[in-house]
Amino acid sequence: MLTAILCALALGYAVLRVAIGYPDPRRHYHRLGRGEVALISSAAEAMYPAGGPIPSSGLDADLPDYLERLMTASRLQTRILLHLLFFLVEHGTLLFPTPGRGGMRRFSSQDIEQRVAALDGWAESTLFVRRLVFTSLRAVLTMGYFAYPPVVRRLGLAPLAIESPICEADLLYPRIGEKPESIGMTAADLTPPSEGIPLPQDGPLHPGFAEPGA
């Protein structure tokens, strides 16, 4: 009887912890749950706080949006791994509580100092698996942060505009998902191949990264 009560309590706690009390996200996500959106935003804020040499913060970079895109482009197996990663970070505080009051609360419910301390705990752990979780989380967040044009512009790393020469292969391969009829180019459209002129570093940026209105 006691075991049954304890199991029921544990189950109730698990449901509360995993599913209840998350804020409504700003938009609808197909691939991410509400808890995951909260976790990603809160981890992004701790990983990339506002200010410093790169003004944009992790929150500005809208990392849930990036992860939604990444997951949409990924296969089921990868998506499962990412869900698992988010779960581990969000609820890992049960196994590895953050120092201070309420250190066992969900990662996304902790205040910013605690979240920074929690991340440091994962990063500096003597357990290889814990460090691996941290490195994986930082990797996906960093990719999202760098997908935000103001960040790479600020660092002078935004891709430059390049006009691709039209070569024989461009007459053979359509865009993915389309038929060859969509190519709409003939041998007359071929252009001379690259002459190897170094890219001028003060040239225009790729349109996807250019300053709005530039």
Binding site: M47, Y48, P49, G51, I54, D120, A123, L155
Partner: peptide, 13 residues
């Protein structure tokens, strides 16, 4: 992570 990481990112150039 945090500001230390941002400072290091600023070193990439």
């Amino acid at each position: 992570s945090g500001m230390a990481l941002k400072n290091r990112l600023a070193d990439i150039p």
